[in-house]
């Protein structure tokens, strides 16, 4: 068992998993919020764009998005983020994870918006706030608080979905390294447990934290 840790950089691979998770979570939250605002905007065209995004991205397998970033966008269209291949793949992985999970973040926020009584938006408009102001000041803050639980589930799914990035990242992150060690050393049950445990360590506290947070931040009506 000790051999694995001395021969392979398992902690380093999990560190990459953590980086991918954090960067993609931020990306997904930003894009998802923008798409959610599009989906609830009063302008029909924007709503259409928002729902197209969600339905297109949500129904595409993440593996397909990952592979198409390198094979399609870099190799065929020549879109390269970094000269260095591993950096290029790393940033494409972050972008694709962000883009993919943004669709789920959008729907989580939208479900949060649905927890807000219609009168809140009317009151915001009636004191003269513009659409943007009532979004920022009244609707989104309440929507986020109402959406903490589904946002937490999305975050946990995102952390585990970073493993899909192995198809373009190779051995840099946890799942890729596990595949390589298995190939070199043969399958081993303890090794699987180590990697499984690694993900539990990453996701379990988030689940517990989210439950506490959603209870504490819930908007009292």
């Amino acid at each position: 068992m000790g051999d694995f840790f001395s021969n392979y950089d398992i902690l380093g691979a999990f560190w990459v998993t953590v980086q991918l998770s954090v960067l993609s979570a931020i990306g997904a939250l930003v894009i998802g919020t923008v798409v959610a605002v599009l989906r609830i905007s009063p302008v029909g065209v924007l709503r259409l764009i928002g729902s197209l995004y969600v339905n297109l991205i949500r129904n595409t397998p993440l593996t397909l998005l990952m592979v198409s970033s390198i094979l399609g966008l870099t190799f065929i269209l020549g879109l390269q983020i970094s000269e260095q291949n591993t950096r290029n793949a790393y940033w494409w992985a972050v972008i694709m994870l962000s883009v993919y999970h943004a669709a789920f973040v959008c729907e989580a926020i939208r479900s949060g918006v649905n927890t807000i009584p219609a009168g809140q938006a009317e009151a915001a408009r009636s004191i003269g706030l513009t659409f943007g102001q009532s979004m920022r000041e009244v609707l989104l803050p309440q929507a986020f608080r109402g959406a903490i639980a589904p946002l937490g589930s999305t975050l946990i799914a995102l952390i585990k979905n970073t493993t899909v990035a192995a198809v373009i990242l190779g051995t840099a992150e946890a799942a890729g390294l596990l595949a390589q060690i298995t190939e070199n050393e043969g399958a081993s049950l303890p090794l699987f447990f180590v990697f499984a445990l690694g993900f539990v360590v990453l996701t379990l506290p988030i689940g517990i934290g989210i439950t506490n947070l959603s209870r504490r931040l819930a908007v009292k009506r």
Partner: peptide
């Protein structure tokens, strides 16, 4: 929005920002 700011509105269900 500017015009609404000059017209106060009080609702049946209060609608204070929760």
């Amino acid at each position: 929005a500017a015009l609404r700011s000059d017209v106060g509105m009080v609702f049946q269900s209060f609608n204070l920002f929760a």
